[in-house]
């Protein structure tokens, strides 16, 4: 049992100090993932709060301490998606609406203004992905989970995770062809 698993085990047995260490350690990563999905800081922080309260209330549901990170990030992802849905739509990428429709003037994002527009475009393209492609991609890129861990959480073979993530990236590439070029 490594250090993290030891902490998780103590947390499961109601050790408040262990819970606080986990909170401090994983808050930033949960925030980044939540922000990627919700597209704004306020919602992302609400997700972080909900997720860490759920970590406490659902600690008995975590059967294996080694599954803590996949379990945590999956909860964060699902909560973030729920929040976006509850708000009645796709994620609104960070306050760049005035730039949103601006097509790139050149092949690459060479100016600051274009870079901001691109960030918004990537957020929108990600939000538009079908769920079965988006979830494994976000868990891999923002949860830093292995394909095996993602497959375990989603209950599908590793090969499926791998091909769905590749498809997700291809769909993003097509949607963002104006920025990243065409084949």
């Amino acid at each position: 049992m490594d250090e993290l698993e030891g902490l998780v085990e103590r947390m499961r047995q109601d050790d408040r100090a262990a819970y606080e260490v986990l909170l401090d350690r994983f808050q930033p990563a949960v925030f980044r993932l939540a922000h990627r999905v919700t597209g704004n800081r306020e919602d992302a922080w609400d997700v972080v709060q909900d997720v860490f309260l759920a970590v406490h209330t659902k600690r008995d549901e975590l059967r294996e301490v080694s599954r803590f990170r996949p379990w945590l990030y999956r909860m964060a992802y699902c909560r973030a998606v729920d929040m976006v849905r509850a708000r009645g739509g796709r994620a609104a990428p960070a306050g760049d609406d005035f730039l949103a429709s601006a097509a790139p003037a050149s092949a690459g994002p060479t100016h600051v203004v274009e870079a901001a527009a691109l960030t918004g475009e990537v957020g929108r393209a990600l939000a538009a992905l079908p769920e079965r492609f988006r979830e494994p991609l976000v868990l891999a890129t923002h949860g830093d989970l292995t394909y095996e861990q993602i497959a375990g959480e989603l209950g599908c073979p590793v090969g499926t995770v791998r091909s769905r993530i590749a498809t997700a990236r291809q769909l993003l590439r097509e949607r963002l062809a104006a920025w990243f070029g065409v084949n």
């Binding site: 606080e20 925030f31 992302a44 960070a94 990537v122 990243f180």
Partner: peptide, 24 residues
């Protein structure tokens, strides 16, 4: 091209220290 896209995809908003403390 995929590497360039990946850089954008993984770019994250960072939490501010004050926000972390407040949420904690």
């Amino acid at each position: 091209r995929m590497s360039a896209l990946e850089g954008e995809l993984r770019r994250c908003e960072e939490p501010a220290p004050g926000e972390l403390a407040a949420n904690r």
